[in-house]
Design a protein around this nucleic acid. Structure first.
Lengths: 356, 356
DNA sequence: TTGTATGCGTTATCAG
DNA sequence: CTGATAACGCATACAA
């Protein structure tokens, strides 16, 4: 038995009315007699009638659902963002369709095609680290599909964007290391094509330059696949460790890289921060419980998801096309522990945990 | 400008053909001349035609999308499961619509109504901790909607289910504590109405009974909202700590509870495992990096999502109704560190990390 | 080989 | 106040 749903027709037949009368009664139209309305409403309730959203979509040219494309769902930052997206969507009666690119342009493209062609009213995207050609997004946007980018944005497309102040986050993190006496501060980054990679490295570089510290080329290692490929991170870390003299600190530029880096160091039995200091972007719910010497830069992922969705729904529901697009830049939170935060830091710091 | 899509009509008009001819050409029907096919295909490609999934859905009475309801997306276990769900869905050309109940029956119900009424072809559910009345799920299922439950299942509904061997996981974890000399082993659990709570507590109780250890009623504390309410976990932990003599170990029965418990203990400056041992279910990507004394029971979340989806797609795509439903029970993984695993443990254990 | 007509569930327009 | 009909985009039975 296939799932057979109750339609307006069933009600009409049962009550000896026409479908249009039933339709109007259900929408509480003024032209229907109270008596008929009562009858219809009661019967509809009784047989558990729900309007068919597909038919509605066909009619109204909208589906009340939005698409989301991220690199991977099982990543704290993205899952928190999706949480925020779902929250706003839910309160506005929208469904959320998620898909992941797994950092592959091809897959991103397939998902895009999949979601598009009007099964969604709008799209929220954090682009894959592999993507360099954004013409498909641009075309889609220019053909009228509302799109909001978050975190990994496409600068060249003029639409709403939601980001954190990556530059400032990386800058402050690096300054923190400098203030605490570290001299050879290396960095591990994602794909060069990502907006966040560029911004964060810029902050890192600025902090070093300002402190008069050296920055040999070999101090910066890229992971083109964002650490999604197994050996990518361990290779990068290995290369950093092979430098002579060895760096005494590492700045990890993304969630995945921070945990990956920490994992590699532990496996290699390199103590953090005794042997080498580590500071990185991370949204894991457990970072604050790990090794007390790990400081992290936390992004307001949930809020980013909320804001992106609010902006998207505005675009979808506004009568006239939107011409002014904004870029919301939120402050990340530098959570410093075990050692004190630099004096005058504008970041909130959490309560130091017990020393054991 | 609203997003206006290309339809079969546009192609027909441009090429001076009828819509049916175009439709058939696009579907590579045998009745269309190669020449016409070429023409249509070329033009469709050129103007970037994509069939309207809504119209298709209305016609074929299917949407090629599946719904997912979980307690919260930003929970490692669930986000990993969703990862698995999306993987299988993607490879079969299905979209995934997610929604979260936030452990609220009401919200679960609203999402259910929302997804149902044929905007989805099937449903994957892990029920909310608050839900005790499953009649809506049952009715829906009986009316023909394919449903697969995972993790938090509804035993009374006869459909496919995917779970981990909760009993065995909790049993082995508790045995591990006993073997390592702990005597007063307490437990912190989710809502009593959840299948997993019952199974896991049963495993815990069995292990204690078998070891001849006492189990006063006060040793088991429930968090009806699964720890989603702020003070729920800290209150439960406080109550356990107030017992005289104080328990020397705690078994945490779910993801959320394990991290919550750990957080409370750290805040209270209670060392794990020096002051009190902790072992719990957890799927966080970082558990293995936390305090080396924390042992965890890890669920194969990704695989569970994959299997649930595979079963669901079978139900959706099978011609005749399925009458035989299976319950897949997977083995969890007990990851023991810092202290050795019990002799003869059938669980894989990971490599001990460096002592500091 | 191609075109015409119909239906999927709903609402809007027009007629009673 | 209510009913018949067209339309949304597509696939298909039936005609030609």
């Amino acid at each position: 038995m296939k799932f057979e749903a109750v339609t307006i027709k069933d009600i009409a037949k049962a009550l000896g009315l026409s479908t249009s009368t039933v339709s109007r009664a259900l929408r509480d139209s003024y032209e229907i007699s109270p008596e008929t309305k009562r009858l219809v409403l009661e019967y509809a309730e009784k047989i558990n009638y729900h309007p068919n959203p597909i038919a509605l979509g066909l009619k109204e040219r909208r589906t009340r659902s939005i698409g989301v494309i991220v690199a991977e769902i099982a990543n704290s930052f993205f899952s928190q963002a999706i949480d925020g997206i779902e929250s706003i969507a839910y309160h506005n009666g929208y469904n959320v369709i998620i898909s992941q690119s797994r950092e592959s342009s091809e897959r991103e493209q397939i998902n895009l095609n999949y979601l598009t062609s009007r099964s969604i009213d709008g799209l929220i995207v954090s682009v894959s680290s592999e993507t360099t050609d954004f013409s498909n997004f641009r075309e889609l946007f220019e053909r009228g599909m509302p799109i909001v980018f978050f975190d990994r944005i496409v600068s060249e497309i003029k639409t709403h964007k939601v980001i954190v102040d990556s530059y400032q986050g990386a800058y402050d993190a690096t300054r923190h290391l400098v203030t605490n006496g570290y001299q050879r501060i290396a960095a591990i980054a994602s794909s060069e094509s990502l907006s966040i990679t560029r911004d964060r490295l810029a902050g890192y570089r600025a902090a070093l330059a300002e402190s008069g510290l050296a920055l040999p080329d070999e101090y910066v290692r890229y992971c083109p696949h964002g650490g999604l490929i197994q050996t990518e991170i361990s290779d990068a870390v290995a290369q950093l460790l092979a430098i002579d003299p060895r760096p005494d600190a590492i700045v990890a530029i993304s969630d995945k890289l921070t945990t990956g880096c920490l994992r590699v160091l532990k496996t290699r039995q390199i103590a953090v921060p005794q042997d080498i200091a580590l500071i990185g972007f991370s949204n894991s719910d457990l970072t604050e419980l790990i090794d007390p010497a790990l400081s992290i830069i936390k992004q307001p992922a949930f809020e980013m998801g909320e804001i992106a969705t609010t902006l998207l729904l505005q675009m979808i529901e506004s009568k006239r096309p939107i011409t002014e697009f904004e870029t919301r830049s939120l402050a990340p939170q530098l959570i410093v522990r075990a050692s004190s935060a630099p004096a005058g830091s504008r970041w909130e710091t959490n309560v130091p945990l017990t020393a054991r």
